[in-house]
Design a protein around this nucleic acid. Structure first.
Lengths: 341, 341
DNA sequence: TTTTATACTGTAAGCGCTATCATAACAGCG
DNA sequence: CGCTGTTATGATAGCGCTTACAGTATAAAA
């Protein structure tokens, strides 16, 4: 590291102009003569000068940096959202910082202080299903943050969150998955994952129930198991469900909250010697990179995460205060089969 | 958003003290009377004041923010490294920003400008295997960056990179894997992935060859296929290798550069009806979350990515200029078997 | 009582930019 | 030739903090 940072003053004196002029060429303003511009650029290049974004932020009150908080990066689903958001931010001339979910955790000393202090130009928050009590605290943290910067949400956003957002219409998605399975002849369709307390009309549960109703199938509580979103949770959930039912009532198809849960279900089925898809069809969600490499390859829903992230950035920058719904499509692979007659 | 940002002056005048005193309680300096401290904190809390990290950075010439550049976040391997680094940074009072690999790309207008302008307190760079010509440019970009901030590297760092680093001693790792397989009776062991030009003594190739030598097995060029690090690359590579050999010379074991390549190999083997592990053992690397959920569960090397990330942050903050080697351990699962007699 | 150390607190000079306003130079016009 | 309008440039006031440095009490020492 060089001992002394070179500043706009160094460039100005080297080029024999004022700092205002250097600033003008730096920002690409029009009213600079071609001769001076060339001279200044030459000096900048020769001295290897990099204007300080800190000082610029100080003076212009805008940092050209956005933030995103994700529940967990280790789930590739969120990594995809981040990647999409980051690329879009880059295109628009912004950088993107990633913050862990704990940044919003009100149980820590000062939930949003760090984020607020950063003076970001905007923040994207991916919301997950959360236990309701915690939810309220997160909402409070979000409202707090909103005093300092615009906030856009991504995910299954409940109506109580009056924020601009890119939501996934999980209801219509689930409804379509149920239809897909009933068309394959399934009548005992389980749904694993999610949080019970949530009563968002966009929620998967609503779509699940609508789907069953469409096919004139009964809603059976034993087929609806709530759990968190990891593979272990999925395996445990399926285990609980199967234990609680006589084998002749076992579901012929399972819809999983996400691919991780689906992986857990497949592992648990394997452990019990239940063949997939012959005796149990499985549908996941998120279409993770490993879905095609499972045995059998997992049918999943591509939720266009990168696009979702990119769109959230656009909403943030443009300042549009609206909620959009992300698209999705079912990727059929070998984990679902027509039910045995 | 509130229209006016409240500043240290607002707090000072509200509390009836000078801004210097507010600054003192903000930074937890000792020489402030308990009464004043309490009064100031009360005002800060009531006005919901958040000191600007921008202004603080301007005045103190330190931003308490680190950066990390990753080849690609979608590979969970890097997501793990990031997570470990971020958590450690947080513990030490720093935030961590993530930058895409393209930030170092010299083919873009100004490779490291964005990073340099950010005035980060330090930067971690994860280096991947790279084609050599590009490598040199990256090295140049890194040296350039180093003028502005300390840089720590993570990965398989060639000796030509005289940077502090957390390296993975891939040679000893590969050697151990080969030993593991030869102890299972394997004599035809293939190794898939990596870049040919690289001649780092820590490199996997060296370990692979040493391992073979230890077991008095010949090095057979056909068993060494180079490819990039995705599942598709792995599948194509195995495909090429098998096509080029008579079935009686097919390897009985494959070591893959990483779990993605291993997944590709497993898929390709499946396509050809080659049973794993009966006719082909497979070893991966990185121990991705999905490794236990493959069929069969994939034997892989846990490279302690989170620890690696955390350690890199420690080196960065402490300023120690040394290279450390990350630990690893083999996680045995069902994708490897004793070779048929 | 005066001197001197001690504990607080205030004043003010930056940090490196942006952005406003003022100024200078020079053209075109009546 | 004086006037206005246009274009290029400079001077300078912040932006919201940190950090010497300079006080001003008050207590301890002489």
């Amino acid at each position: 590291m060089s001992s002394e940072n070179i500043t706009i003053y160094d460039i100005a004196s080297d080029a024999g102009v004022s700092i205002a002029t250097v600033s003008r060429v730096l920002r690409g303003e029009a009213n600079v003569s071609e001769a001076t511009r060339k001279k200044v650029l030459e000096v900048i290049d020769r001295r290897n000068y990099r204007p300080s974004s800190i000082a610029r932020g100080m003076a212009s009150k805008t940092t050209h940096s956005l933030g995103i908080v994700l529940p967990k990066l280790l789930n590739p689903h969120y990594a995809m959202i981040f990647t999409g958001a980051q690329e879009e931010a880059r295109k628009l001339g912004y950088t993107m910082s990633l913050f862990p979910w704990s940044s919003l955790d009100t149980r820590e000393y000062n939930p949003a202080a760090m984020l607020a202090e950063r003076r970001l130009d905007g923040l994207i928050v991916c919301v997950e299903y959360l236990p309701h009590d915690h939810d309220v605290q997160v909402l409070a943290a979000l409202r707090d943050l909103r005093q300092y910067m615009p906030v856009v949400l991504i995910g299954c956003v409940p109506p109580s969150y009056d924020f601009p957002a890119v939501t996934n219409n999980s209801a219509s998605m689930l409804q379509a998955i149920v239809r897909y399975l009933t068309e394959l002849g399934h009548e005992r369709i389980a749904f694993i994952g999610g949080v019970e307390e949530d009563n968002d009309p966009l929620r998967r549960d609503v779509g699940y129930e609508n789907g069953l109703r469409d096919a004139r199938l009964p809603y059976i509580a034993s087929y609806r198991i709530y759990c968190r979103g990891t593979a272990e949770d999925g395996a445990a959930a399926l285990n609980r469900m199967l234990d609680s039912l006589k084998p002749e009532y076992w579901p012929t198809a399972v819809i999983a909250l996400n691919d991780l849960v689906a992986m857990g279900c497949m592992a648990e089925a394997g452990r019990r010697g239940i063949a997939i898809p012959d005796r149990l069809s499985v549908v996941g969600c998120d279409n993770l990179f490993c879905a095609p490499y499972l045995t059998p390859p997992l049918t999943s829903v591509n939720t266009h995460q990168q696009q979702t992230g990119a769109r959230a950035v656009q909403l943030l920058i443009s300042g549009e205060d609206k909620q959009e719904t992300a698209g999705w499509d079912l990727v059929e692979r070998a984990s679902c089969a027509r039910v045995r007659p």
